[in-house]
């Protein structure tokens, strides 16, 4: 059974649909990447999956269970985590407190997860008592992802994790994403840096005008001349 199965999703803000029938399937071992032009509904799709905007038609299943329009708090309980693109940390809380907030829904001991996040993102370990708002952009992104990892998610949604980062940091973040995926976390992310992202993608979704235009493995999409011409800038 697929980890996440979205079928014919329509949805948007205040009655106006931005998504006009999107289909997506992600397995536990997948890194899924959503690319496409501005306004194609990439981030909107992530928000629809995470219950942050209303799905008017279609269904979203998590391991076969219906989760269409479920509250974020419920989804967190089902081991799904979301990292927004902007404002994705608590700036006045320390790094460690940010991570603890990620584990808010956990009633069990999560000390081992703290250690694991610090081993994923070594720069954070030294700054654990520093307010997260004082960190650099790349380190903030690490805090944001670390926060999401605290529930030991089976599916991690990332909205443009490399937005505004230098190429050096971008490579590092992509590397972490691969590591996280290898640890058994299914990943679905939206990326502006389509070429680089598709290189690490096991599945790629090219959206345009709220619909799937191409769906294939990352490699095939990269090599498809039509995709390259229309969406990857030649």
């Amino acid at each position: 059974m697929a980890l996440l199965e979205a079928t014919n999703v329509h949805g948007g803000y205040g009655g106006m649909n931005i998504l006009n029938g999107v289909n997506m399937t992600i397995d536990q071992s997948d890194i899924g990447v959503i690319v496409g032009p501005n306004g194609a509904g990439k981030s909107t799709m992530l928000k629809a999956i995470f219950g942050l905007l209303h799905v008017n038609e279609g269904s979203i299943l998590l391991r076969g269970e219906e989760i269409t329009n479920a509250e974020p708090t419920v989804l967190v309980g089902k081991k799904m985590a979301f990292v927004p693109q902007e404002k994705n940390i608590f700036p006045s809380l320390s790094v460690q407190e940010n991570l603890e907030m990620g584990a808010f829904s956990r009633k069990d001991d999560f000390a081992h997860m703290l250690d694991q996040v610090y081993s994923f993102f070594p720069p954070l370990a030294d700054k654990r008592n520093q307010p997260a708002g004082e960190l650099s952009g790349g380190q903030r992104q690490m805090v944001a992802m670390g926060r999401a990892l605290m529930i030991e998610p089976s599916l991690l949604l990332l909205d443009e994790p490399t937005a505004g980062l230098s190429p050096l940091y971008m490579a590092e973040i992509f590397e972490r994403i691969i590591t996280i995926n290898k640890a058994g976390v299914g990943i679905l992310m939206v990326e502006q840096h389509a070429k680089q992202a598709l290189q690490i993608a096991s599945k790629g979704f090219v959206l345009a005008a709220g619909q799937n235009r191409f769906t294939d493995t990352g490699e095939n999409l990269l090599n498809d001349p039509e995709v390259a011409k229309a969406f990857l800038g030649g």
Binding site: T73, V76, P84, F90, P91, L93, N98, G102, I151
Partner: peptide, 15 residues
């Protein structure tokens, strides 16, 4: 404190 910092993220974090 988290909610006062960033209410949307608090919701997303499962608080």
């Amino acid at each position: 404190r988290a909610m006062s910092d960033n209410p949307d993220l608090a919701r997303v974090s499962g608080i």
